[in-house]
Write a protein that binds this DNA or RNA. Structure first.
Ligand SMILES: [Mn+2]
Ligand SMILES: [Mn+2]
Ligand SMILES: [Zn+2]
Ligand SMILES: [Zn+2]
Lengths: 139, 139
DNA sequence: CCACTAATGCAAAAGCTTCTCATTTCTATA
DNA sequence: TATAGAAATGAGAAGCTTTTGCATTAGTGG
């Protein structure tokens, strides 16, 4: 029950938070903007404000329930924290997003941080390109 | 003379473009926001609008004179194109930015794109952490 | 030096996100 | 279960960065 998840995260189990969590669970693997979540709520006839969506997503992020990414374009996208970190490869034509993990890159990053004396807290790696489908379309 | 650089890039050699290019050259190695460039212009008593700064920076980017980055925080930063690509490591406390290149990572990225069938156009790697100086401050 | 076109400054507007505050909802407790 | 206090919410205003419209100005080729 998600009621417990919220309590465990130190958050009151309110209707907006439960609904938003459910939406994120339903769209697992997708990367949603606040606006997208809001539209889902509207479609479900929920009377929840956009401001609340932003507030809740930020709280979820701080609680470790979701991860926020800053893809090019100037807005944040969110996804349920799947437990293990991954990076992203994005199609600049259609917006498709692929996820990947590369141990060698992860390791090199740690080495670079250490070499610079940084205590690493986070990192983001985005590969931009044209996906196979869009390459075919262009040809 | 920067007059030539602009012509070569297919851009008219106007006063705003010359001034902005000079500022970027003066601050080589720094990462400036449009607002930062604008403040420099004001400090030099130049009567150039912020809108023009944004327009010119975008043109410079398209002409390959400058590179635009999207660091966390929702705004763009620009730097003169130094000819060879590099990635960034940023201090989350003081905003310090270090640059680095890692051939192994570059190579792995290409391999990942190829494996996914993507034709890679660009990529960004940001390592966030606490720099040596800020670690000392905290202790 | 002129005429033509491109570029500029300013103000308005757009897009995303945060804030304010009156009102509502949780939750702990009796 | 009823209640009081604290936390959360909805609606709209406001904040920030960036873009756009338009009248005016400034480069450029001839
Ligand atoms: Mn993802
Ligand atoms: Mn740089
Ligand atoms: Zn595509
Ligand atoms: Zn620092």
């Amino acid at each position: 029950m998600s009621q417990q998840e919220l309590k465990k995260a130190g958050l009151k189990a309110t209707v907006p938070r439960l609904k938003i969590l459910k939406i994120l669970e339903a769209k697992q693997g997708k990367h949603m903007r606040a606006e997208d979540v809001y539209k889902c709520l509207l479609a479900s006839d929920e009377d929840i404000g956009l401001a609340t969506v932003y507030r809740v997503l930020t709280q979820f992020e701080q609680a470790g329930l979701v991860v926020r990414h800053h893809f090019d374009g100037g807005h944040s996208v969110f996804e349920l924290d799947q437990g293990e970190h991954h990076d992203h490869m994005l199609c600049v034509k259609c917006g498709r997003v692929d996820e990947f993990v590369d141990d060698i890159i992860e390791e090199r990053q740690k080495a670079i941080a250490e070499q610079g004396g940084y205590k690493i807290t986070d990192h983001s790696l985005h590969i931009y390109g044209v996906c196979p489908a869009c390459q075919k379309n262009a040809a």
